[in-house]
Amino acid sequence: MSLPATQGAPNGALMELHGLSKRFVKTLDLAGKLASKLGSSIREETVYALDGVNMTVAKGEVVGLVGESGCGKSTLGRIVAGILEPTEGQMYYEGRHVATLEPAEAKAVALKVQMIFQDPFASLNPRMRVRDIVGEAPLVHGLVSSDEFEGYVDDVLGRCGLDASYKRRYPHQFSGGQRQRIGIARALAVRPDFIVCDEAVAALDVSIQAQILNLFIKLREELGLTYLFISHDLGVVEHISDRVYIMYLGRIVETAPTEDLFAAPNHPYTKALLREVPRLETRHSKFLPIEGEIPSPLEPPRGCHFHPRCPHATARCREEVPVLREIAPGRESACHLNDEA
């Protein structure tokens, strides 16, 4: 495994993705199969959710992932968290090719990467008490003994700003913000290094959102955590991330350190996206929508996926896929316009 190890971790990356693709095939039910045999236009549908994604996350880094609804953010997050298998491509964790690991090692990696979801209610078992929601996994995986159990749970809850006296309650007895804290406590309880946050503050009021974002920042400092922070809220991503990846229809179109990206976006899609971010400082805006409809992942456009909506699209853009390549140190963009410069 020496080869993948060196390929996988050129600069101490914690997580590295190489050419990751995911296709969902919607198979036909019986009626559909019959109809198709009888000459109907119903066919098996393939959703191109991810297409050749490369991504590197360094240890201790907060990486933001932004893109429109349906572009594949959650799919990528779920693959990274080991909940979903990629169709193609490799994933390296601390330089080790995850798909080739021995079962015991694979399990250890799976525990090191935890995921926090948008809907704190749907992701918590309503029939379990908080102490079991938080404590079950560490007990099962032998991270704590049964003597240490109660103290350990109190500790994790405390870190997440929850009083130990809440332990015996059920999820429905908490507010949205508290439920999200329980979700965070559950993820932290197995002592992960890497946390995938999928729209983790999207459902919360601003005042509660601020509490949870501050908690993420505090935990990162205290525990040296690494985050992949998925959100469609650019204000939140800008606030918390060191580096940002912009995704469009299954492909990464740009990545840069947060400040550079927001100060000088390169890709036409990123530019359009940033123009539309609502901000407190922007008053009486003249809203100008991006032309055109978000294309379907069932039939992604040829060439550059953004060409039907791009004001700079040329004949080349309609045929040739632009590759993601370096445009400045630490910055990458996938647009043919960069070739002319």
Partner: peptide
């Protein structure tokens, strides 16, 4: 408590 561009990474008011 709204994240704003001038205060990146700084704790938000709670």
């Amino acid at each position: 408590s709204v994240p704003s561009r001038n205060r990146r990474g700084v704790p938000l008011y709670q």
